[in-house]
């Protein structure tokens, strides 16, 4: 069980890293090391305007600090990135079940990320490098070059990332197209790989279809609208496979699941 902490946290640094996308660093001490995929509930601090805290996947954390990658998607994320340095939010973290690297690190891994779904996988990539068991391939896709938060991995501590964009791939190191094309190619050299994926639902569904066709196991980090982050409000439920199939929360039993555990992914008819 991870040791959650809850309390105020001051915004220490912020950096624009891509279109409408920021890395935010807060002063915050968690009680335990965050696993990739674990998240925080971050309340922007103005209770008059925000009824709910926002779930943010943990990009990285260390001694007294925690980093998030925030892409502006609504008024809550807008408030977070526009806040002044030194202003306070409230954080509850770490939350949820992350990727179990103790067992996954023994396998050949391919990481597939779309958009801000890169957050848990970048943390996974770094932890794998630290263990001396880097992922076989790490693939990241975004709409356009200006959506790539390159600073996030510029220090190289997460290993090399293969970058895919749907438009504007003329720049040297970019591949044109979808991450699923990158995944198909990667599987040619690593037929036994386990796939870790996080991104938009359509991307994750496509990854699951590929994994089912090729017989590769897929672990996903799901996203769902949350109220509390602690399993009590029952907003973020998802049905497990089976009949009738247990109904669990993404925030507490997840957000990381093996794809066959989740009914809507396991039962989807192959495209």
């Amino acid at each position: 069980m991870t040791d959650r902490r809850y309390g105020p946290a001051l915004l220490r640094a912020k950096e624009s890293v891509a279109r409408e996308t920021w890395v935010l660093r807060y002063d915050f001490e968690m009680g335990s090391v965050a696993l990739p995929g674990q998240f925080a509930m971050v309340h922007p601090g103005c209770d008059e305007l925000f009824v709910l805290p926002r779930p943010l996947s943990i990009l990285d954390a260390g001694d007294g600090w925690i980093d998030f990658l925030v892409k502006v998607a609504g008024r809550g994320s807008r408030a977070l990135v526009e806040a002044d340095l030194g202003s306070a939010v409230r954080i509850l973290a770490p939350l949820g079940r992350g990727f179990d690297l103790d067992s996954l690190a023994c396998e050949t891994l391919i990481l597939v990320a779309g958009g801000v779904g890169v957050v848990p996988l970048h943390l996974a990539a770094r932890r794998l490098v630290e263990r001396g068991r880097p992922a076989r391939r790490a693939i990241f896709g975004a709409r356009a070059p200006e959506d790539l938060p390159r600073q996030v991995w510029s220090d190289g501590r997460g290993g090399d990332w293969e970058l895919w964009v749907q438009e504007g791939a003329e720049e040297g190191d970019l591949h044109p197209g979808l991450v699923t094309e990158g995944l198909e190619r990667a599987l040619v050299d690593a037929a036994d790989a386990t796939i870790l994926a996080c991104g938009p639902t359509a991307m994750m569904q496509a990854v699951v279809r590929i994994g089912r066709r090729t017989g590769n196991r897929v672990w996903l980090c799901l996203e769902e609208q949350m109220g509390c982050g602690a399993g009590v409000c029952r907003a973020c439920v998802v049905d497990l496979s089976g009949d009738p199939g247990q109904r669990v929360t993404v925030c507490r039993e997840g957000p990381v699941f093996e794809s066959s555990e989740i009914r809507f992914l396991a039962e989807e008819t192959p495209a």
Binding site: V51, Q225, R234, A235, V237
Partner: peptide
């Protein structure tokens, strides 16, 4: 009770709409 299907909550500016369905 399994409660209602998604979506179950929607945050508005000064309040919260929920349709959990007594799960």
């Amino acid at each position: 009770r399994r409660g209602n299907p998604q979506p179950r909550v929607r945050e508005l500016r000064h309040g919260l709409l929920n349709s959990i369905g007594l799960e």
